[in-house]
Each structure stands twice: as C-alpha cells, then as structure tokens.
C-alpha cells in the first residue's frame, strides 16, 4: 500500500485534507498521483473562490487522463499553491508536502469529521476503489 499518513483525512476521490488550526490544506494522495502518472498540468481556483464539498474545485492532467479534483470540505480558498502550474511534477514528487493544492477556510468544520480516516482510506483502496 502506498504512503497514507495517519494524521490526514481522505476522500473516496483520493484527495487528502489536513487540519491546520481553523484551516484545511488539500492535495491528492500518493496513490492518486501514482495512478495518474506524470502530472503535466494543474488548474486551481482563484484565491477567494468558494468551494463546495464533493464538488470539483480544479483539474489535474497527467499523461494518462484529465481528472477533476474534489473538494473535501466547503469553504473559501485562502491560498493556492501558485508553484504548481509552473511545476506540476511537484504533485508526483511530494504529494503530501510541496505538492499541496489549496488552503481552505471551512464553512462547516463538521465536514472534516465525515471524511475517511487513514485506515478507512487504505481499506477503500485495497477493495479496488481506485481512481
């Protein structure tokens, strides 16, 4: 099983969410980037945009496919990783670190608790819940 940090929450669409005080940082999992292969293009929302849980907030394109990115929580985008459009390969190299995508101020903190735990996400992937 690929790397699944225990302190993060996960979606069934293979995004991770990390609580940082009253904010939530979002990216895609190591499994997702491995499935996609080399990422060649990343499209992110603007700072200030509103994102909605379980709806698309951006797009990632790899040599294999274009994939919509799902927001794990609803809220306002406070920061985006402005480096990614110029260096999309960072998503492959460091999906949980420098490959983060957006920082959100959640409008409903309870949504974070509804996401999968690391163990649940590992089980989901092991059962074939692939990308």
């Amino acid at each position: 099983m690929a790397n699944v940090p225990a302190d993060l929450k996960y979606t069934r669409e293979h995004e991770w969410a990390k609580r940082e005080g009253d904010r939530v940082r979002v990216g895609i999992t190591a499994f997702a980037q491995d499935q996609l292969g080399d990422v060649v293009f990343v499209e992110l929302p603007k700072v200030g945009a509103k994102v909605t849980a379980h709806q698309a907030f951006g797009v990632v394109e790899s040599v294999k496919a274009v994939s919509d990115l799902f927001a794990p929580v609803s809220g306002e985008v406070l920061e985006i990783n402005a480096e990614l459009p110029q260096k999309p390969e960072t998503v492959n190299k460091d999906p949980y670190g420098k490959g983060w995508m957006i920082l959100v101020k959640p409008s409903n903190a309870g949504e974070l608790d509804q996401l999968l735990t690391a163990q649940q996400y590992e089980e989901f992937v092991a059962q074939g819940g692939g990308h």
């Binding site: 698309a56 294999k64 994939s67 919509d68 692939g130």
Partner: peptide, 10 residues
C-alpha cells in the same frame, strides 16, 4: 485516445 475522470466515472 484520451480520458477524463470524475471519481470512478469516465
């Protein structure tokens, strides 16, 4: 060929 995905639909 080329693909677009959203969860497990494509």
């Amino acid at each position: 060929s080329a693909q677009r995905r959203l969860g497990t639909s494509f």
